[in-house]
Protein backbone atom coordinates (compact mmCIF):
# COMPACT_ATOMS: atom_id res chain seq x y z
CA UNK A 1 0.00 0.00 0.00
CA UNK A 2 2.85 2.33 0.96
CA UNK A 3 4.49 1.45 -2.33
CA UNK A 4 1.40 2.55 -4.24
CA UNK A 5 1.23 5.79 -2.23
CA UNK A 6 4.87 6.56 -2.98
CA UNK A 7 4.37 6.05 -6.70
CA UNK A 8 1.19 8.16 -6.70
CA UNK A 9 3.12 11.04 -5.15
CA UNK A 10 5.85 10.67 -7.77
CA UNK A 11 3.23 10.73 -10.55
CA UNK A 12 1.60 13.88 -9.09
CA UNK A 13 5.04 15.47 -8.81
CA UNK A 14 5.80 14.68 -12.44
CA UNK A 15 2.38 15.98 -13.59
CA UNK A 16 2.88 19.34 -11.84
CA UNK A 17 6.51 19.52 -13.00
CA UNK A 18 5.61 18.76 -16.62
CA UNK A 19 2.92 21.43 -16.65
CA UNK A 20 5.29 24.08 -15.32
CA UNK A 21 8.05 22.97 -17.69
CA UNK A 22 5.74 22.92 -20.72
CA UNK A 23 4.16 26.31 -19.99
CA UNK A 24 7.57 27.88 -19.38
CA UNK A 25 8.82 26.98 -22.85
CA UNK A 26 6.30 29.05 -24.83
CA UNK A 27 6.97 32.00 -22.51
CA UNK A 28 10.76 31.66 -22.85
CA UNK A 29 10.44 31.51 -26.65
CA UNK A 30 8.39 34.74 -26.86
CA UNK A 31 8.86 36.94 -23.77
CA UNK A 32 7.37 40.03 -25.44
CA UNK A 33 4.08 38.19 -26.04
CA UNK A 34 4.07 37.02 -22.43
CA UNK A 35 4.76 40.61 -21.29
CA UNK A 36 1.71 41.81 -23.24
CA UNK A 37 -0.40 39.09 -21.67
CA UNK A 38 0.73 40.17 -18.19
CA UNK A 39 0.03 43.78 -19.12
CA UNK A 40 -3.58 42.88 -19.98
CA UNK A 41 -4.22 42.10 -16.31
CA UNK A 42 -3.61 45.77 -15.46
CA UNK A 43 -1.95 45.07 -12.14
CA UNK A 44 1.72 45.65 -12.88
CA UNK A 45 3.01 49.16 -12.09
CA UNK A 46 5.87 51.09 -13.78
CA UNK A 47 6.03 48.84 -16.86
CA UNK A 48 7.44 45.98 -14.79
CA UNK A 49 5.60 43.35 -16.85
CA UNK A 50 8.72 43.00 -18.98
CA UNK A 51 10.89 42.18 -15.96
CA UNK A 52 8.39 39.55 -14.86
CA UNK A 53 8.18 38.17 -18.41
CA UNK A 54 11.96 37.78 -18.51
CA UNK A 55 12.34 36.17 -15.07
CA UNK A 56 9.20 34.12 -14.36
CA UNK A 57 9.43 31.62 -17.27
CA UNK A 58 12.93 30.60 -16.20
CA UNK A 59 11.77 30.11 -12.63
CA UNK A 60 8.96 27.89 -13.95
CA UNK A 61 11.45 26.04 -16.15
CA UNK A 62 13.77 25.20 -13.26
CA UNK A 63 11.11 24.22 -10.73
CA UNK A 64 9.33 22.14 -13.39
CA UNK A 65 12.54 20.31 -14.28
CA UNK A 66 13.42 19.87 -10.60
CA UNK A 67 10.03 18.32 -9.84
CA UNK A 68 10.32 15.86 -12.71
CA UNK A 69 13.87 14.87 -11.75
CA UNK A 70 13.28 14.90 -8.00
CA UNK A 71 15.72 17.66 -7.15
CA UNK A 72 15.04 19.96 -4.18
CA UNK A 73 11.37 18.98 -4.30
CA UNK A 74 10.36 20.89 -1.16
CA UNK A 75 11.68 24.20 -2.45
CA UNK A 76 10.22 23.76 -5.91
CA UNK A 77 6.81 22.69 -4.63
CA UNK A 78 6.69 25.77 -2.34
CA UNK A 79 7.39 28.01 -5.34
CA UNK A 80 4.81 26.14 -7.46
CA UNK A 81 2.17 26.61 -4.78
CA UNK A 82 2.98 30.31 -4.37
CA UNK A 83 2.79 30.82 -8.15
CA UNK A 84 -0.51 28.96 -8.43
CA UNK A 85 -2.02 31.07 -5.63
CA UNK A 86 -0.74 34.23 -7.34
CA UNK A 87 -2.11 33.11 -10.73
CA UNK A 88 -5.51 32.45 -9.19
CA UNK A 89 -5.58 35.88 -7.52
CA UNK A 90 -4.75 37.47 -10.88
CA UNK A 91 -7.42 35.50 -12.73
CA UNK A 92 -10.00 36.22 -10.00
CA UNK A 93 -9.35 39.98 -10.06
CA UNK A 94 -9.56 39.97 -13.87
CA UNK A 95 -12.91 38.16 -13.68
CA UNK A 96 -14.23 40.57 -11.04
CA UNK A 97 -13.17 43.55 -13.16
CA UNK A 98 -14.87 41.99 -16.18
CA UNK A 99 -11.76 41.57 -18.33
CA UNK A 100 -12.26 39.21 -21.25
CA UNK A 101 -8.57 38.50 -21.75
CA UNK A 102 -6.31 35.58 -22.59
CA UNK A 103 -4.92 34.07 -19.42
CA UNK A 104 -1.35 33.93 -20.74
CA UNK A 105 -0.86 30.61 -19.01
CA UNK A 106 0.98 29.00 -21.93
CA UNK A 107 -1.03 25.79 -21.58
CA UNK A 108 -3.62 26.29 -24.30
CA UNK A 109 -3.41 28.96 -26.99
CA UNK A 110 -6.21 31.50 -26.61
CA UNK A 111 -7.51 30.23 -23.26
CA UNK A 112 -9.45 33.01 -21.57
CA UNK A 113 -9.57 33.84 -17.87
CA UNK A 114 -12.53 32.18 -16.21
CA UNK A 115 -13.71 29.70 -13.62
CA UNK A 116 -12.25 26.79 -15.60
CA UNK A 117 -8.78 28.29 -15.13
CA UNK A 118 -9.40 28.76 -11.40
CA UNK A 119 -10.49 25.11 -11.02
CA UNK A 120 -7.43 23.93 -12.98
CA UNK A 121 -5.09 25.92 -10.76
CA UNK A 122 -6.80 24.76 -7.55
CA UNK A 123 -6.45 21.15 -8.72
CA UNK A 124 -2.72 21.60 -9.30
CA UNK A 125 -2.46 23.37 -5.94
CA UNK A 126 -4.06 20.30 -4.36
CA UNK A 127 -1.41 18.12 -6.04
CA UNK A 128 1.29 20.43 -4.64
CA UNK A 129 -0.09 20.09 -1.10
CA UNK A 130 -0.09 16.29 -1.41
CA UNK A 131 3.49 16.30 -2.67
CA UNK A 132 4.68 18.70 0.03
CA UNK A 133 3.20 16.61 2.85
CA UNK A 134 4.46 13.29 1.44
CA UNK A 135 5.69 10.83 4.04
CA UNK A 136 8.58 9.36 2.07
CA UNK A 137 11.03 11.13 -0.16
CA UNK A 138 10.72 8.46 -2.80
CA UNK A 139 12.69 8.63 -6.07
CA UNK A 140 14.27 11.98 -5.19
CA UNK A 141 17.85 12.34 -6.26
CA UNK A 142 18.91 15.50 -4.42
CA UNK A 143 19.31 16.25 -1.56
CA UNK A 144 19.69 12.69 -0.34
CA UNK A 145 18.12 12.05 3.05
CA UNK A 146 17.78 9.03 5.26
CA UNK A 147 14.17 8.71 4.16
CA UNK A 148 15.09 8.65 0.48
CA UNK A 149 16.86 5.32 0.96
CA UNK A 150 13.77 3.63 2.39
Amino acid sequence: MNYLKNYSIVILRIIVGSIFLWTSLTKIIDPSKFAREISNYHVMPFGLENTVAIFLPWLEFFIGSALILGIMVDGSIIICSALLIMFNLLVAQAMIRGFNIECGCGLKEGQLVGSQKLIENFTFLGFCVLVYFRQNKFLEIFPKTELSDK
Binding site: I28, P31, A35, N50, T51, F62, A66, G75, S76
Partner: peptide
Protein backbone atom coordinates in the same frame (compact mmCIF):
# COMPACT_ATOMS: atom_id res chain seq x y z
CA UNK B 1 16.10 25.68 -1.86
CA UNK B 2 13.66 28.46 -2.78
CA UNK B 3 16.56 30.91 -2.69
CA UNK B 4 18.67 28.67 -4.93
CA UNK B 5 15.88 28.41 -7.53
CA UNK B 6 15.37 32.19 -7.53
CA UNK B 7 19.11 32.82 -7.84
CA UNK B 8 19.61 30.35 -10.72
CA UNK B 9 16.54 31.71 -12.54
CA UNK B 10 17.80 35.28 -12.15
CA UNK B 11 21.18 34.38 -13.62
CA UNK B 12 19.63 32.51 -16.56
CA UNK B 13 16.95 35.08 -17.29
CA UNK B 14 19.36 38.02 -17.28
CA UNK B 15 21.98 36.27 -19.39
CA UNK B 16 19.57 34.85 -21.98
CA UNK B 17 17.85 38.22 -22.33
CA UNK B 18 21.26 39.82 -22.82
CA UNK B 19 22.38 37.43 -25.55
CA UNK B 20 19.17 36.73 -27.47
CA UNK B 21 18.46 38.69 -30.65
CA UNK B 22 14.85 39.48 -29.65
CA UNK B 23 15.66 40.68 -26.12
CA UNK B 24 13.23 43.05 -24.44
CA UNK B 25 13.73 46.06 -22.15
CA UNK B 26 13.31 45.42 -18.44
CA UNK B 27 10.82 48.25 -18.22
CA UNK B 28 8.02 48.41 -20.78
Amino acid sequence: QVGIFIFISLIFSISTNFFRSDSIDYIS
